[in-house]
Computed example of a mutant assay.
Amino acid sequence: MKKNLVFVLVFTLLMGAGTIYASGNPGQNLSEWYKNAFHKESEKLGAATATGMILVLKEVNVFVRDSKKSIDYALASFRDDKVKEAESGIEKYQVDTINSLNATVNKLENVNFNDYVDKQNIEAQIDQEFEKMVEDVFSE
């Protein structure tokens, strides 16, 4: 009998608890719980997103800064190479010109200008004598 009495008491207690719970609005309780849980999770997600975006922006900033340094270095290297190329070309042209002038000077130093002048004088004398002969031949 004790068992039956305990069983009836537990059954009555559970029925009463179920009635009290059923008399409340379980949909509203669930809705409030969902709103609170959603609000907490959305705050966590928003904080995580903001933190992630800040980290990404910092990484992008570092990448841009490193890229700028790399581009600056590449441009400076390119410019230096082109300047060296131009200087090398100018120096080669200068050396070639000096060598050409020195070769011309050597050739001119080896030429005997007295022979050239004598040759010109001989040609002038031959021209004069030829003209004189032609005059003599036609004047006769």
Rank of each mutant, 00 (worst) to 15 (best):
M53W: 07
H39F: 06
M53V: 12
A17S: 07
A37G: 09
A47G: 06
T97D: 13
N121W: 07
K84M: 05
V56F: 14
V62C: 03
F113W: 15
E87Q: 05
R65G: 05
S31V: 07
K69Y: 09
Q28V: 11
N121R: 14
V60F: 04
D66A: 06
V64M: 10
S77L: 00
E131P: 01
V134Q: 15
D115S: 15
A76G: 11
I90N: 02
Y116I: 15
I98G: 02
N106L: 13
V134D: 15
D136M: 08
S31K: 15
E41K: 05
E140F: 12
Q94D: 11
D66I: 03
K132I: 06
N4R: 00
Y116E: 15
V62P: 03
V134H: 13
W33R: 15
I20F: 13
K44I: 03
S139A: 08
F113A: 09
D118M: 10
T19V: 09
S77A: 00
I122V: 12
G27L: 12
Q94A: 10
L5N: 11
K82I: 03
M53H: 09
N106A: 14
F78Y: 04
R65Y: 07
M53S: 12
N112L: 00
K84L: 07
N99A: 11
T19N: 10
F138C: 07
L101C: 04
F113G: 06
A48Y: 02
I126S: 02
I90M: 01
I20M: 09
W33G: 15
D80S: 06
A124I: 01
K107R: 12
V10F: 04
G46R: 07
I71H: 01
S139Q: 09
S23R: 05
E129T: 13
N106Y: 13
E43R: 01
L9K: 14
N25A: 02
D115G: 06
E91H: 05
G46K: 08
D115F: 03
A17E: 04
N112H: 01
F78K: 05
K40Y: 04
N36A: 13
A17P: 01
L14P: 02
S67A: 08
E131Y: 14
E41A: 08
L55N: 14
D81T: 08
I122Q: 15
Y73G: 00
A48N: 01
S23Q: 10
D127F: 10
I54Q: 13
L55Q: 13
L30Q: 15
I126N: 05
K3D: 10
M133L: 12
F113S: 07
A74G: 01
Q125Y: 00
D136V: 04
G18I: 04
V6F: 12
A48W: 02
V10P: 03
L108C: 00
L55T: 11
D136C: 02
K44F: 03
G89V: 05
Y93D: 15
T12S: 14
G27E: 15
V8W: 09
P26W: 09
G16K: 07
N110V: 02
T97H: 14
